[in-house]
């Protein structure tokens, strides 16, 4: 139940971030950024999301929006930037596997809409 633990972590970060805000009665929407090759399965994260209300009542009835971030890398041999997944990790220009990942591992809380 990896995703459940992450939902609780998310609730904690948001609760701490909102601690300074006044007059918040409920969280309407949480917007997450999940990288294409992060270790999180968005589907399971969605399934576990309602459990956030167990940790913090502000989450009762909240909606979840997931923005997926594509995995992009820069080849260390030729400098080409390429999408990782469709090329199975190999540079399409020169065939090298040696690369720096520019994006795709994110698992961030982008923003929340509150009322």
């Amino acid at each position: 139940m990896h995703e459940l633990g992450l939902v609780f972590q998310m609730a904690k970060v948001i609760e701490e971030s909102l601690a300074g805000e006044e007059d918040i009665t409920a969280i309407d929407t949480v917007v997450m950024e999940i990288g294409e090759i992060s270790s999180v399965v968005p589907h399971y994260f969605e399934a576990c999301f309602p459990a956030a209300a167990d940790r913090c009542p502000l989450f009762a009835g909240a909606k979840l929006v997931i923005e997926k971030i594509p995995a992009v890398a820069r080849c260390r041999s030729c400098g080409e930037e390429f999408p990782v997944v469709e090329n199975k990790g190999y540079c399409p220009a020169c065939g090298s596997f040696d690369k720096d990942l520019l994006s795709g591992r994110e698992f961030n809380i982008k923003e929340v809409a509150v009322r």
Binding site: K12, V13, E106, N108, E111
Partner: peptide, 17 residues
């Protein structure tokens, strides 16, 4: 209904870290 959007911009594990 009036909404207010609050930017969080934090990794999910930042509280744990």
């Amino acid at each position: 209904m009036e909404f207010k959007v609050i930017e969080i911009k934090q990794g999910i594990l930042s509280a744990n870290d």
